[in-house]
Amino acid sequence: MSVDSKTVKKIASLARIAMTDAEVEAMVPEFNGILGWVEQLGEVDVTGVEPMTAVIPNSLRLREDVVTDGNIRDHVLANAPAAEHGFFGVPKVIE
């Protein structure tokens, strides 16, 4: 599969990374190089193989339903670029 600049643009938009046209053009051959290389995986016969879920046998533990956290608003907001009145601030969103 070969990707073009339109696809790279679409992926950049999905990934929320602004890219200039020049950056997009530069990435197209890189992208194709890497994808062409990983596509050799298609050769492997995986009939009847389940995708890996846990590398080391282990089961998901469940915690008890107890409130053990929260009430740390100062910590939560400590690093925020724009915190006001206990909220995080973002550019106005029109829904």
């Binding site: 599969m1 992926i11 890996m52």
Partner: peptide
């Protein structure tokens, strides 16, 4: 992304299992 997940990611996780 849509349409490529199985060909790439699922295949890779199967190869990983192998």
């Amino acid at each position: 992304s849509a349409g490529f997940y199985d060909a790439y990611y699922t295949q890779a996780q199967k190869v990983r299992a192998l």
